[in-house]
Amino acid sequence: MQLHMDWLPFIISFKLAFATTVCLLFLATPVAYILAYKGFRGKPLVEAVFALPIVLPPTVLGFFVLIAVGNMSPVGRWYQNIFGHTLAFTFEGLIVASILYSFPFAVQPIQNAFEGVNPRLVDTARTLGCNRWQTFWRVILPASRRGIVMGIMLSFAHTVGEFGVVLMVGGSIPGETKVASIALYENVEMLEYSQAALMALALLVFSYAVLSVVYYFNRRTSTLVPG
């Protein structure tokens, strides 16, 4: 029995989580802004769509993404025409799936933070010569920094914790789409319990550390920054 751990799946998990989080920051922020500040018809329906990944079995989401990126769909064929292969069973495909899967975990904390910004601060900035864009950068973003950090940490941790979606869309190609949670599952399948235990422990410690930081950060900023 060897207690040597294969780190490659962890590296892939972190690479995936990092890429997903960066993309989400740019995608979720404008969506959160619109949901927080704009009223439009059918808004609850749109919000429900964005929240779907929370309740949907990951395999359902994974199945739809697999179909959508495969060569049976127009999007998949379009991608295949440009790059010569489909997104299915590639790292890029995993990024697309992870963005969808972790979307609510990025949008909701940021949206909550935007909704919590004191409207007087926004009004004051406007009268001090800021247009809407400047007001966003100089007032809404700094006032929401706590929610944005929360969104970043939660999307990162949630992506590291993916299983079903990755399995459906990525398969388990070592060095490409075999992430930590899947490597753990395969170890169990092969009755490599010591390997599996190490990986499980590593994932547990990581998730706990991220959540502790989130809660610590939450408490600290709420007591230190008075309204």
């Binding site: 009004d123 010569g129 006032a143």
Partner: peptide, 16 residues
């Protein structure tokens, strides 16, 4: 932002 008026509300609304 084009009006150049100063506006002070009840709570002051300083940027914390």
């Amino acid at each position: 932002d084009q009006r150049r008026v100063g506006y002070v509300c009840q709570e002051g609304a300083l940027f914390p």
